[in-house]
């Protein structure tokens, strides 16, 4: 039998120098062979549209690093671990829902509070959907598989949050009226309610951020942290104040995903800032371009919190959001000294 004469102990092209690669590294490192490839990333005509798209928005991004492969997701999630983790989290979420359903929780909610849910919480699935598909965009344009995969998992997290809202919409409609489960009603709020318009303007524009690093900055460093704070902290607190502990707990549970999201996006931001001196200016430039729109969006939505039976004033909501986003911003910005 003629066979190979040597055996290999690790990938020949991802040798870590006598260190055994862990499972995450084995299935993540050096997967984006096409990044920076000459004459074009993909084996079609170099001038074909998608080659040009990647050359412009990925290879041609103003944000650059010598080796994107050095960045790792701090949670080191590969598919298998992501799924195992979320399997457990969904079991937890199901138990939360079970517990409140056994108490016939929805029936006891104040109709005035349900109106707030219908105006703020249920239409949020449009916003989450934009975050979901923008994560898929960042994933497909990212320069390394570590970024791609983390971003894809994040997209799935948004779909998870969105589906629980859809579940709640239907569930609430059973005791509080079919409008709550009427798609045209939710769409009308999203398209026409003044409280949602700055958010809608922001999120529609987010879909046009095509430079991958701008999309990452806008989505993961500016827009998502603010929306997550608004819903998963401020609105969750409002739900608790209005005796809607089910909504509060589902939002907190979704907040666990957001925390994991900030771990990797914060780590990537730190990596980017440290990778090249010029990167800071681009990231901060994009941040300052997107921040005013985010502020307007949060302000408009915060104004709706006052309509709850146990209301929260807009200023305190803004403060909650500011505090959370500032803390996150400090975690990546001040960690890397400017040069």
């Amino acid at each position: 039998m003629t066979g190979p004469t040597r055996s290999l102990r690790t990938w020949s092209i991802a040798d870590a120098g006598r260190r055994r690669l862990n499972e995450y590294e084995i299935v993540t490192k050096k997967f984006h062979y096409h990044f920076g490839r000459q004459p074009a990333p993909f084996d079609l005509d170099p001038d074909s549209p998608i080659n040009q798209w990647y050359l412009r928005h990925r290879e041609g991004s103003p944000v650059q690093a010598d080796s994107w492969e050095e960045f790792s997701d701090p949670a080191q999630l590969n598919y298998r671990r992501y799924i195992a983790l979320q399997h457990d989290r969904e079991i937890y979420a199901e138990r939360v829902v079970d517990r409140f359903e056994a108490l016939d929780h929805d029936a006891g909610l104040d109709p005035a509070w349900v109106a707030v849910l219908g105006r703020v919480y249920l239409p949020a699935r449009f916003a989450l959907h934009v975050l979901q598909i923008t994560s898929l965009y960042v994933g497909q344009l990212a320069p390394s598989a570590a970024i791609t995969n983390a971003s894809f998992f994040q997209a799935a997290d948004e779909l998870r949050a969105l589906q629980w809202i859809a579940y709640r919409a239907k569930s609430l409609s059973l005791s509080h009226g079919p409008d709550l489960a009427d798609s045209t009603v939710a769409r009308r709020v999203w398209e026409q309610d003044p409280a949602w318009q700055p958010a809608r303007e922001l999120l529609e524009n987010l879909l046009l951020a095509y430079d991958w690093a701008e999309a990452f900055t806008a989505l993961d460093l500016v827009v998502k942290p603010a929306f997550d704070a608004l819903f998963k902290q401020a609105f969750a607190a409002l739900a608790t104040a209005n005796r809607d502990e089910l909504t509060a707990q589902l939002l907190h549970e979704s907040g666990v995903d957001s925390g994991r999201g900030q771990d990797w996006t914060g780590a990537l931001a730190r990596y980017i800032l440290a990778a090249r001196p010029g990167n800071r200016e681009h990231i901060l430039g994009w941040e300052s371009r997107w921040q005013p729109r985010v502020t307007r969006a949060i302000d408009a939505l915060a104004g709706t919190f006052g309509a709850a039976p146990a209301p929260a004033d807009a200023a305190s909501v803004r403060q909650t959001v500011d505090q959370a986003t500032t803390q996150f911003r400090n975690s990546w910005l001040t960690a890397v000294p400017a040069t």
Binding site: R9, R18, R19, R20, L21, N22
Partner: peptide, 10 residues
């Protein structure tokens, strides 16, 4: 030797 036993090996 350390060449036989890489970091992460048993």
């Amino acid at each position: 030797t350390l060449d036989d036993l890489w970091e992460g090996d048993v």
